[in-house]
Structure formats: structure tokens, C-alpha cells
Design a protein around this nucleic acid. Structure first.
Length: 658
RNA sequence: GCCGGGUUAGCUCAGUGGUAGAGCAACGCACUUGUAAUGCGUAGGCCGUGGGUUCAACCCCCACACCCGGCUCCA
């Protein structure tokens, strides 16, 4: 048989016999690659190893230690999960089971409304390992929709997917299962189990095994909360036992940073159940940090020509009707309070009140941009199941600003806002930013197409002029205008959405806001909503996780703890404390009621930046022993040298450490 | 709001249908200590709240509150 030629990713051509598969190509390159191969691509499309290649195509081999390879083995592991569940729970309906970041899931419905327990997970996992040991090949076949409906007659969710695909109603979630072709592809890996799937899959179940089932959760069918609630099993799967262990270790490390745990251990704040869900009280140590954060924010806003305002927590319902929020967010607001002269609501946002301030008198173009700033307390009735520590709460404080400007000023204002935001976030140790531009959702928005387009372009241009790359999030905008959301990466690479810049052509209209232009004509200003930390509470939660509770010195509630070696050194220790306090540092003393080692340990677990140990030598020479967090012990440091060092540390933190 | 799991001493957690235990923390005494846990002792609990079943409930049932993991939602 004649040879054919295929192109490899490095651009080289390789000649293989006609009828060769991806596996054959891999084998022709090398035996190690053949062994590592899980799947391949042909002209960029992912295919099985058994796929026959045609002359002239570009071929690559997917191995397990690549993102694509992990994706394949996670998807295949999901199939094995479904197979195990179907075998252990006769009559189980299985719906969809994609690969996701770090793992996979599969959604099921068990007969009689049965639900999975944690015990079930271990038996399912055991069955999965049996299936993997059995070395069952994944065999692809294609059939007509009618045949597929017959094959999956007892599987209602599969039938629904097939029907949606054949009727052309399929969306992305279906495509992952079957693709969008005229024929339906299925994978069979034993006599008992066959599943709809676009593929590709690993050649055989024996190629899997470095996995763990993680948790059971409820999940709505097709993400529709009015639809049936399915039982979802989450798992993680990796190319090797080492990679799996590393992943589990990362989860453990992330768990140690949990802001709820640290907030409790470090006595920062709490969520008393007597107070109600999603409401926090700030303890003194947390309050110090919050005050420092807020002081810093105020200083920066003052420097940035913002004007500070205050507005009340309650407002007449008419105000929120006028702003349009009641139309869109009434469900997310605390229930109305009927009062003598009308209906009142807790405010879920500050913007309508800032609009009232703008509109309180005639404005001139000379006043613009007018930047109003408030640390405003707002209350949102978050649904009970969505509350999550500080990250999702019902009463919180926004570092909220509304900027009123002319159309001509808009672009420059957005551009300078990007600089401002990044500059402030860097002070809190965030240096890795990602930008998302959210566009209109026609179903949930107001305003003309032209104005939306103009606003969207303005935001994109501002990012572009800064050379910032961004992703488009289609339909993710607020009802009144498009927005830029800014995500940051924390110390261990997790992504958090913090800041937002939102354009609003709607509110100025609703509130009849105007300014008098230089030509004497009345014009409508453009409004920009902008939160930087977003919610102070949430930002604090993120900071706790980012710093793992070890706040930089400028933010630490207790910057220094002085430990006298013995009671004889108490007086000297106290004099050190007094000196440091007089310089404005936050310092405590821990008297020698316990052994030194124990007291050092307490200071370390309390994440105090500097532990000073003072004993006979120090009393004699006016020095201290410095034990810095994360550093080495230094003896015989003069008090004045330590003061300089501490001052430098604080100043460095306040300037972002740059 | 929906699905699942929880709630026992200040914290972390054991526990059995016959009204409860550990470690750490707290307090007291002894020890006076130079860089990550000294020893001994004491005290501390309406077993989330309210109903019910039972001779008897921390334990079984119901409701509610709060928390955790997801789903949905997030101005």
C-alpha cells in the first residue's frame, strides 16, 4: 500500500502507510510517545488514537501530561463514573459529565428520588477502579438519531440531548456530549455501558486511575432552577499519582488560607447566628485592619480629586423605582417597610442617592468630571444558600464612586480609572490583573442600541490604549450599561473579581441630570459607577486568603510583641514597648508567665510580624533580639536601629513594596 | 430558593435511647526560663432553638435558625 504523508506540529512531514492511525503515527515517532499517547488531533480537531489519518493532514499526539491530555482523561474518567453508577444503582438516569478545571463531574438522577451519600462515593470509586482494571477499550461508533433514541430509550436525559441536537436547538452544553453533526457519536466501553459523546477518549479504561471522587452536590438539569434537581458527583483526575497528590496538597494549602477559619483564629470578626445570616461583626483586631484599609482608600481618593459624601441606609421606594433598580432587583432587596408617608427600602446600592446629590443644584461643565465617593453601607437580600463567609454577605460596605462627566471626558476618565485602580490594588500586593468587558444582555437591559455600542467601544478603547488585553463576556453587563470587571490573582494563583467600572447612560436620564455647557446649552452628563475593592468585607476576605492571615506590617493589628526572657526583664521590656508606641507602632508585651518558647510560638501562630526578645544582655546594652516573621533571629539590635527598620517596613508596605 | 451534610466546653473534635468526654485555650499554684508547646491542679456544657415520640431524648421524628459543599442568582 502506498505511503501517505502527514505534517507534524513542528512543521516536519512524516510518511506513514495508508490506513495508519494516530497511534501508528505516534509509534513511528517513538515508542515512548506511543506509550504516552492518549488521543490526537487532525487539522486541529481532537480525535481518538484509532482515527485513520488522511494524506496531507496535520497531526499531533495528545499525551496525558498536557492540558488537552488531562482533559481527555478526565472526560473518560467521567464516563467510567457513569458506568459505575449505572451498575451499582440500576435504573439510574445519567445526564451530562464533562471535564472541568482539575477534574470532572457527572449528573445523575436515581430511581425513587434517592440521593448519594458519602458512603456511596467510596463504593462507586471502588467499582470505578474495577472497571479501570478490566482494561475495557473505548470504542466509538456513529449512528442515526433514530437509532440513538432507541439505544437510549430508557435514558430520558440522553433522549432530550439527542432531540435537541437533531432539532438544531443544541447549545454549548449539548455539544460537549455529542457534537453538532447529523450523526450521533457514542462510546461503548463494555457490554453494559454506552454513552453519548463527541470524544475523544483514552484508548482503554486501564489508562485511567489517578483520580478521586471529591463530593456530592445538587445541580439543576441544564442549569435551570425550575427544572429537576440532579445529583452531581465531582471528581478530580490526573496523569499520575504524583500529580494527583500535588493537587490534593494544593487544596489542603488553600484550605489553610480559608478566611473564615483565619478570621476566627486571629479574632478578626465573626458571624454571630443571633445576628442573622450573612451579617458580620468586626472584632477589634479586624477593625484595625479595616480602618487602615479605609484610611488608605480615603487618602487615595482625596489625592484623586474625589469629593466625599454620605447617604442614609434607607430610602423611599420611589427612589428605587425612579432608578429602575426595583424593576430588576426587587428580589435581591430586603422586603419593603411600610411607613407613615410611604414605603421604604434598605438601600442595595448608593448610586440613586449620589444622583440626588448631583441633581441638587444646577451644574456647570466647569465642575466636571465630578467624582463623588462614599464608603456606603448597603444591604442585599442574598438568597440563603448563596451566603459564603465574607465573600457573599447581606450587609456590606462599598468603596463606591460615581463620576459624572461629559461625553468628551469619558475616554480619558476611564483610562485614568484603570491606572487608579491598579495602583491601589498593587498596594495590597496584587500585581496580576485580568480584564473582562461585559456587553449587553438584550433581555435584561434598558437604553438604545446606539448608546450601548458607543459605551462598549469606549470601554474597549480605554483598555486598548493601555495595552491591556481583555476578554469579552457577552450579555454580562448590568441593565444600565456595559462594564469592565477586573480580576486579580492572589499569592497562590487563585482568581478573584474585585473592581468594576460601569458606564451608565441611563441613570442621568432617569434622574434628569444636566450640566450647562460652555455654549450655555443644557446637556446630559455621562455617569460612571466604579467600585475598587468592591465590598470592603469581601476585599478583606480576599486579603486574608491572599496573605494567609500574615498581613504586611503596615496592616498588622499587632506589629510587634515584646517578650521579656524573665520577670526581671519586665521593666526593660515595658520601656521598649513605650518607645515603640510613642513612635506610633502597635505593640504588645507578653510577660514571662510562661516559658519563652511557648510565648514565641504564640506570637508566631498569631502571625505577629516582629517578636522582640529581651534579656540580660539587652538590658545591659539597650538592645533587643529581633525575631522577624519568616526571617532569622538577630541579637543585639539597638532599639533605634529596630525602630528604623520597622518604620522602613511600614513605609515599604504603604508604598506597595515597589 | 433548591440538593446534600452539619451544629456537643472559648477553639478543634470524640460520644451512647438511661440527663456527657479529650486536646488546646482560660484560671490557680509551682518553675524564672535567650528564640515555635514546663509540670500539677481548678473551673467550664439547656449537647443550635422550639415542638413531638418515649417511663426516659444529646441520640429517634417534625419545624425553624445558623454553618459547610454544590446548583441557581449576584445591581
Amino acid at each position: 500500500m502506498a505511503d501517505i504523508s502527514v505534517l507534524l506540529p513542528d512543521g516536519s512531514a512524516r510518511s506513514v502507510p495508508a490506513g495508519a492511525t494516530i497511534a501508528d503515527v505516534a509509534a513511528s515517532i517513538g515508542s515512548r510517545l506511543a506509550k504516552a499517547a492518549l488521543a490526537g488531533t487532525v487539522n486541529g480537531d481532537e480525535v481518538d488514537l484509532t482515527t485513520v489519518v488522511a494524506d496531507g493532514v496535520t497531526v499531533s499526539v495528545i499525551t496525558a501530561d498536557s492540558d488537552a491530555g488531562r482533559h481527555v482523561l478526565r472526560h473518560s474518567t467521567a464516563h467510567v463514573l457513569a458506568q459505575a453508577v449505572v451498575q451499582l444503582f440500576p435504573g439510574a438516569q445519567f445526564s451530562i459529565g464533562p471535564a472541568i478545571e482539575d477534574g470532572f463531574y457527572y449528573d445523575f438522577e436515581l430511581p425513587g428520588g434517592r440521593t448519594f451519600s458519602d458512603d456511596d462515593l467510596s463504593s462507586i470509586e471502588a467499582r470505578m477502579r474495577q472497571i479501570m482494571k478490566a482494561n475495557q477499550p473505548f470504542i466509538r461508533s456513529e449512528l442515526s438519531a433514530a437509532d440513538a433514541l432507541t439505544l437510549f430509550a430508557s435514558q430520558k436525559y440522553k433522549c432530550e440531548i439527542i432531540e435537541r441536537v437533531t432539532s438544531g436547538a443544541a447549545d454549548g452544553s449539548d455539544a460537549g456530549e455529542v457534537g453538532n453533526s447529523d450523526t450521533i457519536s457514542v462510546y461503548r466501553n463494555s457490554d453494559e455501558f454506552v454513552d453519548l459523546c463527541r470524544g475523544p477518549h483514552v484508548p482503554s479504561t486501564s489508562r485511567l486511575g489517578h483520580f478521586a471522587l471529591m463530593k456530592v452536590a445538587g445541580a439543576y438539569w441544564r442549569g435551570n432552577e425550575k427544572g429537576p434537581m440532579l445529583q452531581r458527583i465531582y471528581g478530580t483526575a490526573w496523569e499520575s499519582e504524583v500529580a494527583l497528590k500535588e493537587h490534593l496538597h494544593r487544596l489542603e494549602e488553600a484550605g489553610k488560607r480559608d478566611h473564615r477559619k483565619l478570621a476566627n483564629e486571629l479574632d478578626l470578626l465573626s458571624f454571630p447566628s443571633e445576628l442573622g445570616g450573612g451579617l458580620a461583626v468586626w472584632h477589634p483586631k479586624g477593625a484595625i485592619i479595616r480602618k487602615l484599609m479605609e484610611d488608605y482608600s480615603r487618602q487615595r481618593h482625596q489625592d484623586g480629586d474625589y469629593q466625599f459624601v454620605y447617604t442614609p441606609h434607607l430610602a423611599n421606594a420611589n427612589l428605587f423605582a425612579q432608578s429602575g433598580h426595583l424593576d430588576f432587583y426587587a428580589d435581591g432587596m430586603y422586603p419593603p417597610m411600610e411607613m407613615d408617608n410611604g414605603t421604604y427600602y434598605m438601600k442595595p446600592m448608593n448610586c440613586p442617592m449620589h444622583c440626588l446629590i448631583y441633581g441638587s443644584r444646577q451644574r456647570s461643565y466647569r465642575e466636571l468630571p465630578l467624582r463623588l465617593f462614599e464608603l456606603g453601607n448597603v444591604y442585599r437580600y442574598e438568597r440563603a444558600g448563596t451566603l459564603h463567609g465574607l465573600l457573599r454577605i447581606r450587609g456590606f460596605t462599598q468603596d463606591d464612586s460615581h463620576i459624572y462627566c461629559t461625553e468628551d471626558q469619558m475616554a480619558e476618565e476611564i483610562a485614568s480609572l484603570l491606572d487608579f485602580i491598579m495602583s491601589v490594588l498593587r498596594r495590597f500586593g496584587f500585581n496580576d490583573f485580568e480584564f473582562n468587558l461585559s456587553t449587553r444582555d438584550p433581555e435584561k437591559s434598558v437604553g438604545s442600541d446606539e448608546i450601548w455600542e458607543k459605551a462598549t467601544i469606549a470601554l474597549g478603547d480605554a483598555l486598548g490604549s493601555h495595552g491591556l488585553e481583555y476578554k469579552i463576556k457577552d450579555g454580562d453587563a448590568a441593565f444600565y450599561g456595559p462594564k469592565i470587571d477586573i480580576d486579580v490573582r492572589d499569592a497562590i494563583g487563585r482568581k478573584w473579581q474585585l473592581s468594576t467600572i460601569q458606564l451608565d447612560f441611563n441613570s442621568p436620564e432617569r434622574f434628569g441630570l444636566e450640566y450647562v455647557g460652555n455654549d450655555g446649552q443644557r446637556r446630559r452628563p455621562i455617569m460612571i459607577h466604579r467600585a475598587l475593592m468592591g465590598s470592603i468585607e469581601r476585599f478583606f476576605g480576599v486579603l486574608i486568603e491572599h496573605y494567609a492571615g500574615a498581613f504586611p506590617t503596615w496592616l498588622s493589628p499587632e506589629q510587634v510583641r515584646v517578650l521579656p526572657v524573665a520577670a526581671a526583664h519586665n521593666e526593660y521590656a515595658q520601656s521598649v514597648v513605650t518607645q515603640l508606641k510613642s513612635r506610633g507602632f502597635r505593640v504588645d508585651i507578653d510577660h514571662a508567665d510562661e516559658q519563652l518558647g511557648k510565648r514565641i510560638r504564640n506570637a508566631k501562630t498569631g502571625k505577629v510580624p516582629y517578636v522582640l526578645v529581651v534579656g540580660d544582655d539587652d538590658v545591659a546594652h539597650g538592645t533587643v533580639g529581633v525575631n522577624p516573621r519568616g526571617g532569622d533571629v538577630e541579637r543585639d539590635v539597638t532599639v533605634s536601629a529596630f525602630v528604623d527598620r520597622l518604620a522602613a517596613d511600614v513605609a515599604e508596605g504603604q508604598s506597595g513594596g515597589e
